[in-house]
């Protein structure tokens, strides 16, 4: 299937918050309870449908440990979207968000769309960061926010799709210059302007909060 656009994503956040698991759930529809840690970077890809357009997502998954920071930084540039992930059961991963955000803003292009993701919401009994806190942080820093569970496949699709939709809007409004590949968008062969009204968008509005 031809695509209209290719969006580059990057997933960042502390080690062990479930970055690789989110990616695996999104691309392969499976969950691996013992997931090998990431050294350096890895990537995955999947085709999605945004307003009738085929969009290919190319997602770069990065190592969370501090030692790898200087290496992963070079991948920030040339990304259209970023998933900034924390673990709702570990408060320190929430505290580190400010550093991650600063880092991302400094090394990426200004048009990059950042989504804040509170992962592991299936572990509600061990919750250490409330939904409201996450939402508040997102509002303060002008981010989109979702809580997800890579294990139960809750809001995973939505997290990736929602970001894609915003990037698409930015393209339509002319905020993102698609001719410059450094913005993380590549134009494909399929039509980009016409919207296929017959095809129902596969994505629904994000549910906002998962696990009730």
């Amino acid at each position: 299937m031809s695509y209209s656009y290719l969006f580059k994503y990057i997933i960042i956040g502390d080690t062990g918050v479930g970055k690789s698991c989110l990616l695996l759930q999104f691309t392969d529809k499976r969950f691996q309870p013992v997931h090998d840690l990431t050294i350096g970077v890895e990537f995955g890809a999947r085709m999605i449908n945004i307003d009738g357009k085929q969009v290919k997502l190319q997602i770069w998954d990065t190592a969370g440990q501090e030692s790898f920071r200087s290496i992963t930084r070079s991948y920030y540039r040339g990304a259209a979207g970023a998933l900034l992930v924390y673990d709702i059961t570990r408060r320190e991963t929430f505290h580190h968000l400010t550093t991650w955000l600063e880092d991302a803003r400094r090394h990426s292009n200004s048009t990059m769309t950042i989504m804040l993701v509170g992962n592991k919401c299936d572990l509600d009994s061990r919750r250490a960061v409330s939904y409201e806190e996450g939402k508040k942080f997102a509002q303060q820093h002008d981010l989109i926010f979702l809580e997800t569970s890579a294990k139960n496949d809750e809001n995973v699709e939505e997290a990736f799709n929602y970001t894609a939709r915003i990037i698409n809007e930015k393209i339509e409004k002319g905020i993102i210059d698609v001719t410059n590949e450094m913005n993380g968008v590549k134009v494909g062969n399929a039509p980009t302007a016409t919207t296929n009204l017959l095809e129902k968008p596969t994505t629904s509005e994000p549910k906002g909060k998962c696990c009730g």
Binding site: G44, K56, K186, G188, N189, A190
Partner: peptide, 9 residues
């Protein structure tokens, strides 16, 4: 290998 191209290209 995952190509950044569509499959039917």
């Amino acid at each position: 290998v995952d190509f950044p191209f569509s499959a039917d290209e």
